[in-house]
């Protein structure tokens, strides 16, 4: 089992190192992730959203629906924890515990 795990991990590592060939260099200002829509966020944040903190304006203004979905996920996780860990009354739910 340990040998199988080590083998899987080493194969994955070799594939990741092979894939790292195509990544941009560390801190390259013109890498593809930094040229498409991020400059618009940087320049328009105070004019359109009214806050100098770019991350805050993107979280709450430009991508507010994303944050709302995140809240739904956390609410679902909390409900799942409550349903799993509550004390059972007598005669209810003998299938688990």
């Amino acid at each position: 089992m340990k040998v199988f795990a080590l083998l899987t991990v080493i194969i994955t590592g070799v594939m990741l190192v092979y894939g790292a060939e195509d990544f941009p260099k560390w801190g390259d200002p013109n890498q593809p992730g930094s040229v498409h829509v991020a400059p618009r966020y940087t320049q328009g944040t105070y004019i359109e959203a009214g806050t100098p903190n770019i991350v805050t304006s993107v979280v709450a203004d430009y991508r507010g629906y994303d944050t709302m979905g995140e809240t739904t996920v956390i609410f679902t996780a909390g409900m799942a924890c409550i349903l799993m860990l509550r004390k059972k009354k007598r005669g209810e739910g003998e299938s688990n515990v």
């Binding site: 992730g33 991020a38 320049q43 105070y46 991350v55 993107v58 991508r63």
Partner: peptide, 16 residues
Amino acid sequence: HGSANPLHYMNPLPHV
């Protein structure tokens, strides 16, 4: 007021 140079600030999108 819109004069920010994007090269002077980190890319905020991965942070979000």
